[in-house]
Nucleic acid binder design. Sequence first.
DNA 1: TCACTTTAGTGCGTTATCGCACTAACTTAG
DNA 2: CTAAGTTAGTGCGATAACGCACTAAAGTGA
Lengths: 245, 245
Amino acid sequence: MPLDGKQNTGRKNFLLASLPDVEFERVQSHLELTSLKLGQVLYESGDRLDYVYFPTTAIISLLYIMENGATAEIGVVGNDGILGIALFMGGDTTPNRAVIQSAGEAFRMKAKDLRDEFTLGGVFHNLLLRYTQALITQISQTAVCNRLHSVEQQLGRWLLLSHDRLNTDTLVMTHDLISNMLGVRREGVTLAARKLAERKLIKNIRGSMTILDRQGLEQAVCECYKVVSDEYNRLLGRGIARTFG
Amino acid sequence: MPLDGKQNTGRKNFLLASLPDVEFERVQSHLELTSLKLGQVLYESGDRLDYVYFPTTAIISLLYIMENGATAEIGVVGNDGILGIALFMGGDTTPNRAVIQSAGEAFRMKAKDLRDEFTLGGVFHNLLLRYTQALITQISQTAVCNRLHSVEQQLGRWLLLSHDRLNTDTLVMTHDLISNMLGVRREGVTLAARKLAERKLIKNIRGSMTILDRQGLEQAVCECYKVVSDEYNRLLGRGIARTFG
DNA sequence: TCACTTTAGTGCGTTATCGCACTAACTTAG
DNA sequence: CTAAGTTAGTGCGATAACGCACTAAAGTGA
C-alpha cells in the first residue's frame, strides 16, 4: 500500500519524521494508515502484538487494569512515538491495555516488518531505543506524581501531556474517562477541573475540556510535566512539547 | 583485572549468568568488582554515566528527588539486572538518583565497553533489552501501586522485591529510609510494619526487618508484586522470584 | 417535544494519610 | 556505665480523597 508524498504520510509522526530519507522510504513501504475510534482497544493485557502503531493524530493510553476492575494509566503515546515497544524489546506482550484516548489516525506496521527493520540496527534501531528511554521517564514520573501530588496537579499534568500530542486545544473526554486514566473518582476530576477552570486555565464543557491558558497551566502544575517534557526534547531532539525546548 | 572461575564471578548476577560462555568470557574481561556501602550514591540525577553496574549482592534503588526534597522510588535493581540502562538506550543520563539500598557487591563495567558489546548485537544486546522491558513493568506497577494501594500493601510489595534480590531474610533498613523509598511518612512505615508484624509475616527489630513468612506475605500483598515477578520470570526465564516461576 | 440517556454537580459521613511535637527505647562511644 | 545519638512509637488535629446516593443539566432520538 504505497503512500504518496512525504507530507501526507508518516512524517506526521515525529519518530518517523526523524528518520533519514533512506530509512524512511524503506519503513514507509510497510506502513498502513488506520483510523482509530475513541475507546477502541488496540492491545489487551497479555495479547501477542501483531502490529505496532505510529500515531499521527490519535492518542493512545497505556492502562493497567487491576483484578477488581480499577484502572490506572501508566503512560500515553501520541504523534511523538510508537505503541508496541515490547515487540522490539523482546517481550512480545505487555501486561497493559492500550486504548484510544483521543480518536484519530495512526500508521500501523506488521510485527515482523518492524523486527526486521529493527534488526538492521540503523538509525531506526537507535531512535526506537531513545524513544523507549523517554517513555520510561514518562512512566517513572507518573509513579512519582501518583505518590506525591494532588488530583488537581495530576489532572494538569495529564492535560498537558495530552495537549502536546494534539493539534487542537480541546480534548474530547468525559470526567468519567479521565478518572479511569488517573485512577481517581469521577467526582475528584470534576472538582479538580473546576478548580483549574476557576483559575481560567481551562474551560469545562460537558464532554470536553479546552485549554485556555497553556502557559498558566504549565506554571500551575507540579514539576513532573516539565521533567518528562524536557527529557523527550533531550532524547528525541525536537519540540514534542509546545513550549519547552 | 581478570577474575577466577565462573562461580565466583559475574555469574552471581543473573543477567550475566544468562550469557552463553563465549559472550560471558568477553564481557567478564571488562568487569571489575566493587564494594558498595549503604546509602552510597552511584548516580546523581542528570549525571553522565561512566559505569554500569551488575549487582551480585548489593541492591540499588532508583529514586526521584523532587525540588522540595521529597523522594520516591521508581524501581529497584539487584542481582537480577543492571544499573545504567540509559547508556545503551541512548540517553547517557537519567533524571534519577541511584542509591545503594542494601550494602554488598557489584561488578562494574566502563560505559564504552558496555556500548561496544551492546553494538555487537548478540545475546547480550537482546538480554539487556529484555531486562529493560522487565524493568519497565516494575516501574509501571510502581505507578499503579502508588495510585491504588495502601501503605501497608506497598510496604509488602517493596519487602518482597527486596527479598527476591537478597540471600538473607533480613533487610538492614530503618523505617526512615524505607519511608524515603515509598514516598510516605516514617510513621506510616512504622504503622504498616507493625500491622505486618502482628500477622506474623515479618519481624520488626530496630534498624532491620526480617521476613518470617514469605508465602504469607505474598498472599497478603496486592497483586502488583506478582505481576512484576511473573514478568521478570517470563522475560528473563529464570527464578528471579523465590517462589513464582 | 417528550421521554431517555449521558454527563456533571452536590452533600455527607468515612477513611487514609499527613504534619508536627513529643516520648520511649535501643545502641554506641567515651 | 553513663551521656549522646539514633531509631521507633504515640497522640492529635488537619486534610485529601473516598464511597455512595442523589439531583441537575445537557444532549439524543422517536
